[in-house]
Design a binder for these strands. Structure first.
Length: 701
DNA sequence: ATTAGGG
DNA sequence: CCCTAAT
């Protein structure tokens, strides 16, 4: 009735205006197979673990050397205070620096493991240019308002707050707390805390690192996302007290603006706030909740090899665990390969994620009761569930171990183990210095739109979070997208000997610190030739220590100069592709409402005028492009044709589908007839509502 | 920048 | 949804 009328009107009203175009079916192209992206994940598990172990090792040595003062509480407090001050200061600087840039985010890395015992505070702002080069990166605006503070602490004594707290009360846990303790605290916290709550959970897992994350599914309001990464105490006594905390405060500022703000005529209801950071900054600076774990001095981190043993002990003790992880990694890798999404662009690292609510019993600890701690914590999980059920849904899961992005390391055989360690350490540090970004991967797809809520993204407490992954990416990316990481390698490898001799301890790595290579390597001029003549050198040069794959581009940043030199060499499209971590937009099923709007618009405008359709019906839906609408129409038509049983997803009212068919038929006719359509019989189309197939004959006579 | 089609 | 060719 009403619909009928509208349709009639629409058809009549627009038939004159419409200038149908000839079908472009002639444009059909042959199968233009796209190259398979067979790039591999390049996260070096081995290296990662090596690095991790080195850290622990150094810690252990420091811990042991600090044994006497290890329990010195007073000392610790002082340190805490000092550190806190220092940190605040630094943070302040950071914030100010950040200042006007609404696009910048920063990551602070505070590490006591630094050789010079200083914090490394690095700010980074995502290179806008880099983003711009990524054509599918629509979400330029965000993640800039995500501030994270990474605190890498070096424990040397027992009782110190193990949390870095930002803007929200947290449960503090002494790092020596055992599982029981943690449980208690959790339960306690359960009652005390409302809303988002982050808990530091100490467990005995061998995990070098574990992330526990909990945050509301909807982060578009005032909610802060808190993420705490804690370094798990390792079984070994010398390790048992150390942990790293990461507190990540992310804020999606209130609005949910669309991924890209098109400069259209439409009023931009959502304009990115000019100073996204400010509020948070203030919050951060004034927060009473800042709790900074003390960074204890390391005593000659690399001095002795005493750590080796514990290291291996640890290894052994967690062997099965490693196995497990490895397995999951493999699985994940497979998954990624299937979706051909994963290319290690800038340092890919994925880790297993367990969904606590989902698993129930495994609780915070993770998978399948894999961890002993799991049982101990499960109860609290349950209660937590209960508590959050009444409130907003929270997504809870734990991240077990980030994998360190790929590193390239090369040292002479004659180098000492110590120097190797140092090299790795420096490499890692360099990357941290460069700043890290956290990427979120869902079902193999990288989620780049920081503005969407978790719900919108498909991360909900109800969903299976197994598909959720995170990456740590070096913040510094190659300036020129045309340069693929593979290319520089040969040159590097060929320079390797020279460099190594030049600087003994200097890692021959292309880490995030491109400046670390002061002088242009001599052989530069040859690079081009090298690349073409000896491609194998890429893989052949790979360090045995690293499980590198030829395709891995990792966080490799090409030294400025070799970049230039290489620029001449046409970048391999395949590699190029891999290097661009193009994220697939997350799926956003059309709602019935949207379908309705689309149908109506198409009824009136016809197919082939998607831009107009977009303008008419979806002007305010920035996430729907005209291509999307066109695609949706396509699927709608298909859906309408198939039997209801075969349809999936949110069922579209048959009435709408009928209209789809009718309009489709009509406009098909219309187009086919080009001009000569005087469909007086247009009215018949409306009959389609009653009889879907009636539409077929509904055209003008 | 849009459209049409294929994947 | 993505990618591309063709407009």
């Amino acid at each position: 009735m009403v619909l009928k009328k509208r349709l009639e009107y629409g058809l009549h009203g627009f038939q004159v205006l419409t200038v149908p175009r000839a079908p472009r079916s002639t444009r059909r192209r042959g199968p233009n197979k796209k190259k398979i992206d067979d790039s591999q994940i390049c996260a070096f598990e081995l290296l990662a673990s090596l690095a991790g172990k080195l850290l622990q090792e150094s810690e252990s040595s420091s811990a042991s050397s600090n044994a006497s003062e290890g329990n010195n509480q007073t000392f610790g407090d002082d340190v805490i205070k000092q550190e806190k001050q220092a940190e605040d200061k630094l943070l302040k600087e950071e914030f100010f620096e950040q200042g006007s840039s609404e696009e910048s985010a920063f990551v602070s890395v505070i590490t006591s493991q630094d050789i010079d015992e200083k914090f490394i505070l690095k700010k980074f702002s995502n290179a806008v240019s880099e983003r711009a080069s990524n054509k599918s990166d629509f979400d330029d605006k965000v993640n800039k308002d995500v501030k994270s503070v990474i605190c890498n602490t070096k424990p040397a004594f027992q009782n110190y707050p193990a949390k870095v707290e930002v803007g929200c009360p947290l449960i503090e846990e002494p790092c020596h707390a055992n599982v029981e303790n943690g449980k208690e605290r959790q339960q306690k916290g359960e009652k005390l805390e409302t809303g988002s709550l982050t808990k530091a959970n100490t467990c005995n897992s061998e995990d070098p690192m574990q992330l526990q994350i909990e945050f509301p599914t909807a982060v578009n309001s005032d909610n802060d996302v808190k993420l705490s990464l804690l370094r798990e105490p390792v079984p070994n006594a010398s390790f048992s007290r150390h942990r790293n905390d990461i507190k990540l405060v992310g804020s999606d500022d209130d609005e949910n603006f669309s991924r890209y703000n098109k400069s259209s005529t439409k009023g931009k209801a959502f304009k990115p706030p000019a100073r996204i950071g400010d509020r948070r900054i203030r919050k951060l600076l004034t927060s009473k909740y800042w709790k900074v774990a003390p960074k204890l001095r390391d005593c000659e981190v690399f001095r002795s090899d005493s750590g080796v043993k514990p290291l291996y002990n640890k290894r052994k003790s967690c062997y099965s665990r490693d196995r497990f992880q490895h397995d999951t990694f493999c699985k994940r890798r497979k998954l990624f390969h299937r979706s051909s999404v994963v290319s290690s662009d800038g340092g890919f690292s994925s880790e297993s994620v367990s969904n606590s609510p989902e698993k129930g019993k495994s609780g915070d600890m993770g998978f399948n009761g894999m961890f002993h701690g799991a049982a101990g914590v499960s109860s609290s999980v349950i209660s937590r569930q209960a508590s959050f059920n009444s409130k907003d849904s929270h997504v809870k899961f734990s991240i077990k171990s980030f994998k360190v992005p790929e590193l390239f390391i090369e040292v002479p055989e004659t180098a000492t183990v110590g120097s190797l360690k140092r090299t790795v350490m420096e490499t890692v540090t360099a990357i941290l210095e460069g700043g890290l970004r956290v990427g979120v991967i869902l079902q193999g797809k990288k989620i780049k739109d920081d503005n969407r809520t978790l719900q919108q993204t498909g991360i909900s407490s109800k969903d299976n979070l197994d598909n959720l992954g995170f990456t740590l990416e070096p913040n510094i990316l190659p300036v020129s997208p045309s340069i693929c990481a593979d290319d520089p390698l040969p040159s590097l490898s060929c320079e390797a000997p020279e460099q190594l001799t030049r600087s003994t301890g200097t890692p021959l790595i292309d880490s995030a610190i491109s400046d670390s290579l002061p002088e242009p390597p001599p052989p530069v001029t040859n690079i081009g030739t090298l690349v073409s003549s000896n491609p194998e050198s890429v893989s052949s040069h790979t360090d045995p220590l690293t499980d590198t794959t030829p395709d891995s581009q990792a966080l490799v940043v090409v030294p400025a100069m070799s970049m230039e030199a290489l620029a001449v060499v046409p970048a391999n499209p395949k590699n190029r592709k891999a290097s661009e971590f193009v994220q697939r937009r997350t799926r956003r099923p059309f709602s019935v409402l949207e379908v309705e709007a689309l149908v109506q618009a198409v009824e009136e405008l016809g197919t082939g005028r998607w831009r107009d359709v977009k303008l008419r019906a979806f002007e305010n839906a920035d996430h729907r492009t005209y291509v999307d609408l066109k695609d949706k129409w396509k699927t709608l038509v298909h859906t309408a044709k198939i039997s209801p049983q075969q349809r999936r997803g949110e069922p579209v009212p048959q009435e709408l589908l009928d209209r789809v068919l009718a309009a489709h038929a009509y406009w098909s006719e219309h187009q086919a007839k080009q001009h000569g359509m005087q469909q007086t019989g247009t009215l018949k189309i409306t009959d389609a509502s009653a009889d879907r197939h009636g539409a077929e004959g509904s055209h003008s006579s």
